[in-house]
Simulated scan of single mutants.
Amino acid sequence: MAPDKPQKINGVSFVSSRDTINATHIDPVVNIHANYASIMPFGFVRSVDHHEINYNRQRQWYGERRDGVRQYIKSLKARGIKIMLKPQLWVGGVFTGQIKMNDEAAWEQFENSYSSYILEYAALAEEVKADIFCIGTELESFIDHRPDYWKRLITDIKKVYKGKLTYAANWNEYDRTPFWNELDYVGIDAYFPVSDLKTPKLEDCKLGWLKHKDTIHAFSKKHNKPILFTEYGYRSVDFAGKQPWRSDRDMDQVNFEAQNNTTQALLETFWDEEWFVGGFVWKWFHNHERSGGENDSQFTPQNKPTEAILKEWYSKY
């Protein structure tokens, strides 16, 4: 009898669209042996110091609203794909980690708005039996300035949702996030710099991971929590491993080799480790046949050589 394959979260970050989804949109997810999808209903904030979050509005795309999220999750689950529900904020093109209110009254208004947003989707996560609920994404300054609020929020979430919890900490934030002991996974958006080279070789990237891996492993042991890469991935662009978080449009020199080697190195470095539960590649669009491709310098692996690398690795777990 063949030994059982180790179980990992082989995830895709499934991007919302203006449409419903059906089997033609889900087949490509199944075909790469993904077993999880991250569904991301966005809330929109006017600026980093604005205290109101707009969400679940009719002018948003269908997949970003509550009814669309429900339809996406139901359709994916019907094909055996498990779900992480990951509501996250968008702040007019500015990094969400910079959100910071100007006074106590504004903080309290913002916290009330965030609680309404998160608890609505926590209730939906319970309704649809989502496997993981992510309580926030890359909210570094918000957490630094208001740690007590986050402890209260987690308590309130647990009254509503009974599944596994995580938070998507940015790669340079996770080590000071104060509430990991209240969650099930240490969630990291894994945009760690691994190489300054224009086209790094596989071994360059694996070498670049060594110091990060040791630190992440030690952190996992310290908190006795498994590591989940709530996002990971690289652009198909020159210098893909230098500052992997960058999405600048002026970075447009397509480089598939750089994307291949950075992705392969991450998978080789982490997927075999017992303390690592898996991750969600950034990002995956519903219309597979029109996504990515030979002229695309952005993150998606779709219709690029990296898609085959992902499929090969996901097939092992």
Rank of each mutant, 00 (worst) to 15 (best):
M1C: 05
A2Q: 14
A2W: 07
K5R: 09
Q7W: 09
Q7E: 13
G11W: 00
S13V: 03
S16Q: 12
D19F: 12
N22T: 11
D27N: 15
H33G: 05
A34L: 05
A34D: 09
M40P: 01
P41I: 07
F44Q: 04
V45K: 11
D49N: 12
H50G: 08
N56R: 08
Q58D: 08
Q60R: 02
W61L: 03
R66A: 06
R66I: 14
G68L: 05
G68E: 11
R70E: 03
Q71K: 13
Q71C: 03
S75N: 13
K77Q: 15
A78R: 07
G80D: 01
I81R: 00
I83V: 10
K86D: 08
P87A: 09
Q88Y: 08
T96D: 11
T96I: 01
Q98G: 10
D103L: 03
A105F: 03
Q109C: 03
Q109P: 00
E111M: 12
E111I: 02
E111P: 03
L119I: 14
E120W: 00
E120K: 10
A122C: 08
A122Q: 05
A125I: 12
E126D: 15
E127P: 13
A130T: 06
D131Y: 05
I132K: 02
G136E: 02
D148S: 12
D148E: 13
K151M: 05
D156Q: 12
I157E: 04
Y161Q: 00
Y161V: 01
G163E: 03
A168K: 04
A169L: 09
Y174N: 04
Y174Q: 10
Y174M: 08
D175K: 15
P178V: 00
P178T: 07
N181R: 13
N181M: 11
D184Q: 04
Y185S: 08
V186D: 01
S195T: 03
D196N: 14
K198W: 00
T199W: 07
T199G: 07
K206H: 05
L207N: 15
L207T: 15
H212Q: 02
K213G: 09
H217C: 03
H217D: 09
H217A: 10
K221P: 00
K221V: 08
K225E: 04
I227Y: 04
I227L: 11
L228R: 10
Y234R: 06
Y234F: 15
F239H: 14
F239V: 05
K242S: 13
Q243V: 09
R246D: 15
D248G: 11
Q253A: 15
N255H: 02
F256V: 06
Q259P: 06
N260A: 10
N260T: 11
Q264W: 04
Q264M: 13
Q264T: 14
L267C: 13
T269D: 10
D272L: 01
E274M: 03
E274T: 13
W275V: 07
F276E: 00
G279D: 13
F280Y: 15
W282E: 06
W284Y: 13
F285A: 13
N287A: 14
H288N: 04
H288D: 07
H288V: 10
E289F: 01
E289G: 04
N295M: 02
D296K: 05
S297G: 08
Q298R: 14
T300K: 07
N303W: 02
N303Y: 12
K304N: 06
P305C: 00
E307G: 03
L310V: 14
L310D: 06
W313A: 02
